[in-house]
Design a protein around this nucleic acid. Structure first.
Length: 185
DNA sequence: CAGTGGATGCTCT
DNA sequence: GAGCATCCACTGT
């Protein structure tokens, strides 16, 4: 498991450190290969305009899951970072499917491995993440986070799917991974 | 491969 | 009533 205070830091430190960390939900998942950072004062962040019912978890303590519905169809999961009130979070965008691949296929349909978790919405569908996991701590079931071994080679670039604050290179990925949602330029 | 548009539900203006 | 931290199918090269 990750150290208790892993998430009690700036999201800009946590996000790259998440690359290579294994995320499991009820034993299904694999090493994270793509993450985006959203911080306080970030016009692209859900927390930018203050606390609401939807984003309340972002304003709470670090080390918790913030799950929201995207485009009315998909679910996306964030890990809350920093200290309460700072409302920073790392969006988990892709992982390498290694554990429970059969269950992922059952949830996603018969797809190539590289299509199972290569996007925030796909990843949540493959791991069975919904509103039911919003606000749950990351150091207790159904979650399991396993520290990475070694230091991965990390690439950065602009975040995807946003219209504001596009200038920041706050998207982090595992260099050369075939499981990214999109290539890095 | 690149580009486009529809599906769909909820939040906030 | 607008606008999404998306995905997939479909079009045209």
């Amino acid at each position: 498991m990750l150290e208790r205070d892993f998430f009690a830091r700036s999201v800009h430190e946590v996000a790259p450190d998440l690359i290579g960390v294994t995320l499991l939900v009820d034993g299904v998942g694999g090493p994270i290969v793509e993450v985006e950072a959203y911080d306080q004062g970030d016009p692209a962040s859900h927390a930018f305009r203050g606390q609401t019912a939807r984003n309340a978890v972002m304003f709470g303590p670090p080390g918790y899951a913030y799950v929201y519905r995207s485009y009315g169809i998909h679910w996306c999961i964030n890990f809350v970072c920093n200290v309460p009130g700072r409302a920073e979070a790392a969006l988990i965008r892709a992982l390498a499917p290694e554990h429970g691949i059969e269950q992922m296929r059952a949830r996603r349909g018969l797809l190539a491995d590289r299509a199972l978790c290569s996007g925030p919405g796909k990843l949540c569908q493959a791991l069975g993440i919904t509103r039911g996991q919003d606000g749950l701590p990351l150091d207790a079931p159904p979650f399991e986070l396993l520290a990475r071994e070694g230091t991965p080679s990390i690439v950065t670039g602009p975040r995807i799917g946003i219209t504001r604050a596009v200038e920041h290179n706050w998207r982090y990925g595992l260099a050369g991974s075939p499981f990214l949602s999109r290539r890095f330029r």
